[in-house]
Design a protein around this nucleic acid. Structure first.
Length: 258
DNA sequence: AAATTAATCAACCGCCCTGAT
DNA sequence: TATCAGGGCGGTTGATTAATT
């Protein structure tokens, strides 16, 4: 049995919200608070999907939202956070008070991405484009096909790939890009500890993170490829980056907890 | 002034995660 | 342990506005 839809689509409005709908939603949330988005539309007298109400509230109607242009500081912070977190817009938004993940995502795609490209910086790897071209091979092939697959495809051979792609096939690309986007950065040699971590209940992990415990990790500089001990490396100190303890542990789950 | 193109951003879609049962 | 509902997230779409031809 499949999952039931989040709402009765046949009787819901779609598209832009009207002033009246906004007023109803705001009035309802002021009176009853957030929560139970599924039942909210009916209770508030709205012909909208619960998800739609949530999105409208979070991205537009919430009173603590900061509207208007992004400042240069916010720009820088977004770039830094993106280099760390990748497209984890909600985590990035958590570090920018008054900004929503949707807003940041749009801003990234329309402004920052272009700005970085114009400076010759790859917006994905955050490295100079020349470097990125030299070090990273991007393949749109999910994985090399198996022999069986190859023989299955033999009846309809694909057209020969362009020269660049042929080169990629000769030399398989590395599976991992330059940037480690895992939520937790730690040395790969702590297998047992990791196993213990995996079986810890989420609530325990959360408490430990809030208390500042964690496995020995890399500093922000090293996580971006700096030599350990080089300028910018803070591995040996209990310094902070963006309000996070980075000397002991750089764990992005902490971003959510702040 | 009209047509076309580019830029912006609100909203939707579908998947995933988590907690309850 | 399995299943389900609800919430959250990231990617994408499409309407609107601005700029250009």
């Amino acid at each position: 049995m499949g999952r039931s839809p989040c709402c009765e689509k046949a009787h819901t409005n779609k598209g832009a919200w009207t002033k009246e709908e906004d007023d109803r939603l705001v009035a309802y949330i002021r009176a009853h608070g957030e929560g139970c988005w599924r039942s909210l539309p009916k209770a508030a007298g709205l012909l909208r999907c619960g998800k739609s109400c949530r999105l409208r509230w979070i991205n537009y109607l919430r009173p603590d939202l900061k509207r208007g242009n992004f400042t240069a500081d916010e720009d820088d912070l977004i770039v830094k956070l993106h280099s760390l977190l990748g497209n984890k817009w909600s985590l990035i938004a958590a570090r920018l008070p008054g900004r929503t993940d949707n807003e940041i995502k749009n801003y990234w795609n329309t402004h920052i991405k272009r700005k970085l490209l114009s400076r010759g910086i790859d917006p994905v790897t955050h490295r100079p484009i020349a470097d990125a071209a030299r070090n990273v091979t991007i393949s749109f092939q999910p994985d090399a096909p198996s022999q069986q697959q190859l023989s299955d495809d033999a009846e309809a051979p694909p057209p020969p790939p362009p020269p660049q792609q042929q080169q990629q096939q000769l030399k398989p690309p590395p599976r991992c890009p330059d940037l480690n986007l895992d939520l937790c950065i730690s040395p790969p040699c702590h297998k047992e500890e990791e196993d213990q971590e995996l079986i810890k209940p989420a609530a325990v992990k959360r408490e430990m993170l809030q208390a500042g415990h964690g496995t020995l990790g890399l500093c922000f500089g090293c996580s971006l490829g700096l030599q350990k001990g080089a300028a910018g490396c803070t591995c040996s100190s209990n310094s902070h980056f963006l309000g996070l303890r980075v000397g002991m542990l750089l764990d992005f789950r902490g971003l959510e907890m702040k």
